[in-house]
């Protein structure tokens, strides 16, 4: 029964991946006819020695850390707000959940409009407090914050959903017991609520780290890596290497370094899921 699925995945996905894995050991440009020349590990050595690439990893890390931290905080607060049943909850929840289901490219286009110095309501709003027109995408720091804001806005609801799932799993009698013991809200949170949502927060952290690490669409549409190359992420750089400079094999090598990172993170994620299932607090 699994044969058709495996065959499709193999032909369309795994075979091309192995092909490019092989390619990463050759010198090859997709826009030349010249046959690939074997280079061994040279491409990997080039990638690891290249300061430009380390810089791209730093940009990516800054965006990942900034965005994931904001998502965890905002998502957590949203979850506390929506943890109780109240009139119209279902409809309000829809408004908060909607951004998560939008396309990354649509969010890129939205925020490009909002950050526009003359038309965008966000930049116009900030300009009220600054002497000059506030051009959001003009400096590296501002552009990075702009990307983080767009990404965090989109994905905070994801963290909210996971935290909500954790909050429901707390048995009510624990709160009742805490009530009798006159435990303050902080103590109740720290000793009762937090242990139940800890594993889900970890899952949210890992999942969002994997996804944000790959960030492409938002950066590509919003800043195109600019100003200069100050917000260029690894994904955008691989794209440029492969399709603008046509250094196909070098791009493949860099891609495989990314893939390795993602595989490690994915294993951690699945491991965290298994641990969570095994925990006595669930079921």
């Amino acid at each position: 029964m699994i044969a058709p699925a495996i065959a499709t995945l193999f032909i369309v996905n795994i075979f091309p991946l192995m092909w490019s894995f092989g390619l990463s050991f050759f010198e090859y440009k997709a826009n030349r006819i010249a046959a690939p020349v074997f280079k061994g590990l040279d491409n990997y050595a080039d990638v690891l020695k290249d300061p430009d690439i380390w810089e791209r990893f730093q940009h990516t890390a800054t965006i990942v850390v900034g965005s994931v931290v904001v998502q965890l905080i905002v998502g957590f607060l949203l979850a506390l707000l929506f943890a109780n049943e109240f009139p119209l909850r279902r409809y309000l929840l829809m408004l908060v959940l909607a951004p998560m289901m939008l396309s990354l490219s649509a969010v890129g286009v939205f925020f490009k409009l909002f950050y526009d110095p003359t038309l965008g309501f966000i930049s116009r709003f900030i300009s009220l407090f600054t002497p000059d027109t506030y051009v959001i995408l003009s400096t590296p720091a501002r552009a990075t914050i702009a990307i983080v804001a767009a990404d965090a806005w989109m994905w905070s609801p994801f963290v909210m959903l996971l935290v909500l799932a954790g909050l429901v799993s707390v048995p009510k009698y624990l709160y009742e017991a805490a009530e009798i013991d006159r435990a303050g809200w902080w103590r109740r949170f720290r000793t009762i609520t937090f242990p139940y949502i800890r594993s889900l927060l970890l899952l949210a952290l890992l999942f969002r780290t994997i996804e944000t690490f790959k960030i492409f669409d938002v950066v590509y549409i919003l800043t195109e890596g600019g100003p200069g190359s100050s917000t260029e992420t690894v994904s955008v750089y691989v794209y440029r290497l492969a399709f603008q400079f046509f250094r196909t094999s070098l791009a493949s090598a860099l891609g495989y370094i990314m893939l390795f990172a993602v595989i490690v993170l994915t294993s951690l994620y699945l491991y965290a899921i298994q641990t969570r299932r095994a925990e006595p607090v669930n079921e």
């Binding site: 092909w19 490019s20 790959k214 492409f216 691989v238 891609g255 495989y256 993602v262 294993s267």
Partner: peptide, 21 residues
């Protein structure tokens, strides 16, 4: 796990060989 990885991997990696092929 392998199946999930093909979904988790950065699409930019998959696109290079697929584009050429």
């Amino acid at each position: 796990f392998i199946i999930l990885t093909t979904r988790m991997l950065p699409p930019i990696i998959a696109i290079i060989p697929i584009f050429v092929l």
